[in-house]
Structure formats: structure tokens, C-alpha cells
């Protein structure tokens, strides 16, 4: 009986845990799991990779996609110091004001500013993209089944459509996307950005770097979470051991 209950409990838990991903399949191709630096119990971001990813976002993605929940001050998490962040923020122009006469004006960005998107509103975004709306990327790795693996698969998964496939005009074939046709053209190509640290800028590297950056953008507290979690679990394991010993001792007078 006890063995049975143990199995049922284990089965129940695994079902509960797996049910979250059970309906992820859909019609699209299942993305391959990648070996991310932030995976696992001791996972952490690779700061150099995040900076490279930010470079790709700034030079490629930001042409169409906003990143509205990330402020320049958050870039501290990429390993930039205060002066560097000020310099990065100052490269952009944001609307300030109103001044004393009630007029709005443009001023250089400051660390407290959030990253401004490329379009003023949704209608403008759609007008520039053939009716499609490029989603905000702040939470993209959390808002898609498969997370970072999916984003990586999508970015590297462009290919020419099979002959039997009817591709709508202005659409691109990508079997990882639900329905296999996506409005976004393949955004990455070998050498589309030039890395300062000399990392070869092939498509796989670019896709991995920008995906790592977007994962950070979606979950900037990931490292704190794993670090604190480790201490909490160790503490609880010791506490459980002590409580078990105490319980055994008290109950030993009964049996």
C-alpha cells in the first residue's frame, strides 16, 4: 500500500509538472533544446554574450521591434558600468518637456528612460509591415512555448518553402512558426553585425547571442533567483533532516 501511494504521488507530481508543457506541441515543429549558459541549477548569463545580443537588438531587431519594459539603467545586468550606460542612453533622442513655455522638445536619453520603440503606435507599426504587428520583445522568451529554444529555432529556421506549400505574398516560410508562414523576413545573416570582441558573426552565433539577450530582457532576475534558491533548498534540506530526527526521537517513546 505504501509503495502504491508513493508511486501515485510521484505520478501526480510529474503529471502536474508536465501538464504545463503538454499542449505546447501544436502544428509547428518542436524546437531542439539548446545548451544555454543560464540553464540548470547554477545557470548564469554570459555577460559578453548578453552585450553581443544587445548589439544585435540595437542594430537589427530594433528597426521593427520595441523593448518597452527594459530601461537603460537595467543594462547594468549586462555588465555595463554607470558611465557606459549613460553613454548608451545619450545616443538616443527622447521627447522631453514641456518646457516653461509649454513646448515639447527632444533631449538625449538618460539611464532612467525606457528603450523607445521604432513606431509611435500600433497602426503605424502595421502600416510599415504590410499589416503585421512586430511584437514587443521584452517578454518574448516567456510568451512563447519553448522559450529561448523556440526563439533560437525560429531565427535559424528559415528555409525555402516546399513546392506543395502555398506561401502568401509577403510571407516567409519557417516551419517552427505556427502555420509555417511568418511575416518577418529572415532577420539574421552571416556578418549582419560586426562584433568588437572578434566572435565570428555567423547566423547560429548571432541567433544564440540575441536569444540570450532576450532571455535576460524577459527575466532579468534569473541569476538572483537561482542563487537564492540554492541557499533556500540547502537550508530546507538540513531543516528537514533535523525535524525528522526530532520527530523520530519524540515518537520512539510510543512504539
Amino acid at each position: 500500500m505504501q509503495v502504491l501511494t508513493k508511486y501515485v504521488f510521484a505520478a501526480a507530481l510529474s503529471l502536474v509538472v508536465s501538464s504545463g508543457t503538454a499542449w505546447a506541441a501544436g502544428e509547428a515543429h518542436e524546437p531542439e533544446p539548446q545548451d544555454w549558459s543560464f540553464n540548470g541549477f547554477f545557470g548564469a548569463f554570459d555577460k559578453a554574450q548578453l552585450q553581443r545580443g544587445f548589439q544585435i537588438y540595437s542594430q537589427v531587431c530594433s528597426g521593427c521591434h520595441s523593448l518597452k519594459f527594459v530601461a537603460y539603467r537595467h543594462l547594468e545586468g549586462l555588465g555595463y558600468n554607470e558611465a557606459e550606460i549613460k553613454a548608451i542612453a545619450a545616443e538616443t533622442q527622447v521627447e522631453g518637456g514641456p518646457d516653461d513655455s509649454g513646448d515639447m522638445f527632444m533631449r538625449p536619453g538618460v539611464p532612467a528612460d525606457f528603450i523607445t520603440g521604432p513606431y509611435d503606435n500600433e497602426n503605424q507599426a502595421r502600416a510599415f509591415n504590410g499589416g503585421a504587428l512586430p511584437p514587443d520583445l521584452s517578454l518574448i522568451t516567456k510568451a512563447r512555448h519553448g522559450g529561448p529554444d523556440y526563439i533560437y529555432a525560429l531565427l535559424t529556421g528559415y528555409e525555402s518553402a516546399p513546392e506543395s506549400f502555398e506561401l502568401a505574398t509577403g510571407m516567409n516560410y519557417n516551419s517552427f512558426f505556427l502555420g509555417s508562414q511568418i511575416a518577418m523576413f529572415s532577420p539574421l545573416a552571416d556578418g549582419v553585425v560586426e562584433y568588437a570582441d572578434g566572435t565570428p558573426a555567423n547566423v547560429e552565433q548571432l541567433a544564440a547571442d540575441v536569444t540570450a539577450f532576450l532571455t535576460w530582457a524577459g527575466e532579468p532576475r534569473l541569476e538572483d533567483r537561482k542563487r537564492i534558491g540554492f541557499k533556500v533548498v540547502i537550508f530546507l534540506l538540513i531543516l528537514s533532516g533535523l525535524l525528522y530526527a526530532a520527530k523520530r526521537r519524540v515518537w520512539s517513546t510510543l512504539h
Binding site: V16, V17, S19, G20, T21, F41, K142, R225, K226, I228, G229, F230, V232, V233
Partner: peptide, 8 residues
Amino acid sequence: VFYAPESL
């Protein structure tokens, strides 16, 4: 909470 907060 710490290692798979989005799994459920």
C-alpha cells in the same frame, strides 16, 4: 519557485 517558476 526558484528553478521552474513558469512550468505550471
